[in-house]
Amino acid sequence: MEQEPGPTIIVDADACPVKREIIDTARQYDCSVLLVASYDHRMEAEPAVAVVQVDRRSQSVDLYIFNRVRTGDIVVTQDFGLASVVLAKGAIVLSNRGQRYEQSSIDFLMERRHEQARLRRQGKRSKGPRAMTAEDRRRFQQKLTKVLQNLQEFGEP
């Protein structure tokens, strides 16, 4: 896929619950969308929406996104590790709940993830993420809209 003018919204699509919100919002701003997922997830391309499916190895989606992302692209992921490396490449990164990941806070998030994994290895239980609500979807769409408006109006997020 050739680099489109303007930002591309690249989605870590394996477990992304807001794909429809991303596609609908991108259409309003004439942005292209790239959904990247393993072959385990069936997805269909649409106008201005490309789908790339990779093998199911644990980091295949992340590696594809890392190799494809360019400065100014928008990446949607809930993976702190992926967020960290694409931030370093100049991407704008949002979680599927609309949280904007920043260079200034990603180290803390990575450290917290590591601590939670350490506790799980010791047999301690931790809660998973709460179920997505309609409010979460609306909030995500508002955050994405704001980022796209700022890029369109000012050339910066």
Score class of each variant (00 low, 15 high):
D40R: 10
F140V: 01
R70M: 10
E115F: 12
E46G: 06
G98Q: 02
S60N: 10
R20C: 05
Q141W: 05
A83P: 02
T133W: 02
S58C: 11
T145F: 08
Q59A: 08
M132I: 13
L82V: 03
Q141L: 07
Q141Y: 03
Q103R: 14
Q149F: 06
P17H: 03
D14F: 04
E102P: 06
A26V: 09
K143N: 02
G123C: 02
V33Y: 08
E115C: 01
V147H: 06
V49C: 08
L63V: 12
L63Q: 05
H41G: 07
R42E: 15
E111T: 11
N150V: 03
Q78Y: 06
I9N: 05
R68L: 00
R68C: 02
P129R: 11
K143R: 15
D62L: 09
S60G: 10
V54S: 01
F140I: 00
E44A: 15
F140S: 02
L87C: 03
L34T: 05
K146A: 11
S95D: 11
E135T: 07
E156M: 10
Q122R: 13
T25D: 00
A117L: 13
E21L: 06
R120P: 01
T133E: 03
R56N: 15
E4K: 14
R120N: 08
L82S: 01
L119P: 00
I106F: 13
I22T: 03
E2L: 14
A26M: 10
R100I: 05
Q3V: 10
Q116H: 08
T25Y: 02
R113K: 15
K89H: 05
G90I: 09
R100M: 10
L144S: 04
R57T: 10
A131V: 11
G155P: 02
V11R: 04
F140R: 02
V93Q: 11
E21N: 06
R20M: 09
E4N: 13
A50P: 00
K19P: 01
R121W: 00
K124R: 10
G72V: 12
S95K: 05
I10L: 10
G128A: 14
I74W: 12
Q122W: 07
Q59H: 03
M110R: 15
G128V: 10
V93H: 10
E4M: 12
A15T: 09
R138E: 12
E135P: 02
F80H: 15
P47S: 15
G90P: 07
G90L: 11
R118A: 12
F66W: 09
V61Y: 04
E111R: 14
V51P: 14
I22F: 02
E153I: 00
Q122D: 09
M110L: 15
L119V: 08
R68Q: 09
D107W: 05
I106K: 09
M43D: 12
F140K: 04
N96L: 01
C31F: 04
V18S: 04
R112M: 15
F140D: 01
P5K: 15
F154V: 01
P5G: 01
